[in-house]
Design a protein around this nucleic acid. Sequence first.
DNA 1: GCAATCCGGACCAAATCAGTACCCTTTAAG
DNA 2: CTTAAAGGGTACTGATTTGGTCCGGATTGC
Lengths: 155, 155
Amino acid sequence: MIRLSKLTDYAVVVMTAMIQGDGGPHTAISLAERTGLPAPTVSKILKLLARDGLMASHRGATGGYRLARAPDAINVAQIIAAIDGPIALTDCVEGAPGACGVESLCPRRGNWDRVNRAVRGALEGVSLADMARPSFPDPLLPKAAPALPATADAI
Amino acid sequence: MIRLSKLTDYAVVVMTAMIQGDGGPHTAISLAERTGLPAPTVSKILKLLARDGLMASHRGATGGYRLARAPDAINVAQIIAAIDGPIALTDCVEGAPGACGVESLCPRRGNWDRVNRAVRGALEGVSLADMARPSFPDPLLPKAAPALPATADAI
DNA sequence: GCAATCCGGACCAAATCAGTACCCTTTAAG
DNA sequence: CTTAAAGGGTACTGATTTGGTCCGGATTGC
Ligand code: FES
Ligand code: FES
């Protein structure tokens, strides 16, 4: 299974929790209470998100975090990049020499970039606003990725 | 970084090495020599691929492995599924109750399926034949995923 | 000044993964 | 029939990554 780190999952939970509140700033502790996640973990996530510019932080006595942009201007790719680092599936990515142990023998160094690009594009097609929609049983896909004709659901 | 397991990377290396040989069966040891990977690891990979029907194996004295299908009839999603298991980015996928610890509080259970579908579609758009192409500096994307307007290359 | 809040990093335990080894079954060659 | 060569399966171990926690310091409002 291509594991997305659990922290990234939590990040989406926290961010959607912020959407549902009013526009005011949210403190890390209040978000932890509303999401049921441990407070230090929430704090860690918020810090990572703020570092990448997805959150606007305000220090001091009445400080807190706010979303830096509108929910539909934030996509899943950005959240993943903030928590897990750049989106690259393999070690043999473009700029890293010597990362892959067999690169001297492997004639296909760099072709994973095509895969990376495809995945990245798919992730950019899903916004935070999409994730925040309460539930949608129908596969209407109003603004998701261009819906390849997925061969089967269970691959 | 969304890590794809290193074994999956190796699987593509091994499979492309098979393409470049003649049509005859390849033994695990000969493939290990040609790819520079340790023999037990190659054997393990081949076993996994054979179990999922991507390889045709022949036992006995003159046995070996062959590709079960043409290179352009095998896509990256299938290889990943064979090595890493089903493609699902998060623990909170459709059929797993209790997998995610916060599911009772999280109102968005199941929305990750949209992301999963998008990624899966992107992966299905890249075939093994694409990966075997010696090198392609141009982003023509002859048969890759429908190319969303990627915002930037460095996300 | 004081209290509340964010900031940055270090730290540890648990889970996962890569790699290896072992033994069994199957098949073809001699 | 016997033997050797190859895949099939499983179990084990060390290394790596991850999730989660903690603490001291900086910043702002009351
Ligand atoms: S360089 Fe890593 S797979 Fe070839
Ligand atoms: S159920 Fe897992 S994120 Fe909500």
